[in-house]
Design a protein around this nucleic acid. Sequence first.
DNA 1: TTAAGCGATAGTTTCC
DNA 2: GGAAACTATCGCTTAA
Lengths: 89, 89, 89, 89
Amino acid sequence: MDEPVAAEQLRSFVERIERLEEEKQQLADDVKDVYAEAKANGFDAKVLRQLVRLRKQEPTERAEQEAILDLYMEALGMRMGDIPAAQAA
Amino acid sequence: MDEPVAAEQLRSFVERIERLEEEKQQLADDVKDVYAEAKANGFDAKVLRQLVRLRKQEPTERAEQEAILDLYMEALGMRMGDIPAAQAA
Amino acid sequence: MDEPVAAEQLRSFVERIERLEEEKQQLADDVKDVYAEAKANGFDAKVLRQLVRLRKQEPTERAEQEAILDLYMEALGMRMGDIPAAQAA
Amino acid sequence: MDEPVAAEQLRSFVERIERLEEEKQQLADDVKDVYAEAKANGFDAKVLRQLVRLRKQEPTERAEQEAILDLYMEALGMRMGDIPAAQAA
DNA sequence: TTAAGCGATAGTTTCC
DNA sequence: GGAAACTATCGCTTAA
């Protein structure tokens, strides 16, 4: 009979999750506030969002897309050889 | 010298995928339209989605999850009448 | 001549947003960790999510949707015992 | 007493949705098959997905990002004036 | 074969 | 009321 322990564990997990999500929601609200404040200062919130998105994409996806671009060129036969990349060896 | 063939293959694969995804998108739009139409006829779209989801789920699987959920709720002492269908009466 | 100020403002807004979103992401990761830990302790993560969702939902709202769902299911003749909790017995 | 009509409507909506989602699933499976076939022909499925994604982004998002880039430059004061964009004037 | 990470999709909520 | 953005859930892919 170890269900009581499990119940305590469960309660703990649930409460931790709820606490974290509460904080997360708080942060989300804060973000919203900043956008509102920016808007009140004459900035276009939508464009701001796009800007933030773009800056976020840069480190990660940019390099990735760069790599793809090369593949892309290969794909269209605009580069030397070995497209199938894994053929027999 | 078989790269040209590979490039052709690649192009073919890409086009097939794009065609299929286009059709898929079309269908997704159609689904959206049906929900909109249902809503216009007085149905609750949200519940409708739930209904479709339920019908999709294996009765077995569903019952199983329901059972686990009950266990968890009991463990947390949440059995007061929050689940309408379980109210004795 | 107030563009420099505006640019400074913009930079400030962007940085505040990015900082907040960073923290938000951190919290999201934490939540994920808790679910993983719960799973490692034998809990069903999917049901756990459902539980958290339920607790978050207003009992009123939930009961309401349940009621509508029942109506729809009746309308479709789906009342055979798929909903475990409603089985008279 | 108009519930019978509603029930018929409901059934119709549900069936239409289910039918459409079935077809959608079929298409999704087809896409999967194409990727599998491509992979069997020596192509890297992951890269292929990226390629498709990229091609999809191009018409839509590319133009969008182009526009943002201009904004970006303005934001950093690398352009002439009027950053706040909506200043009465 | 199963777990974990990732990508895609779907659903909710927000703003217009 | 409709459109857009964000979040969360889900399923696939891959690696152990």
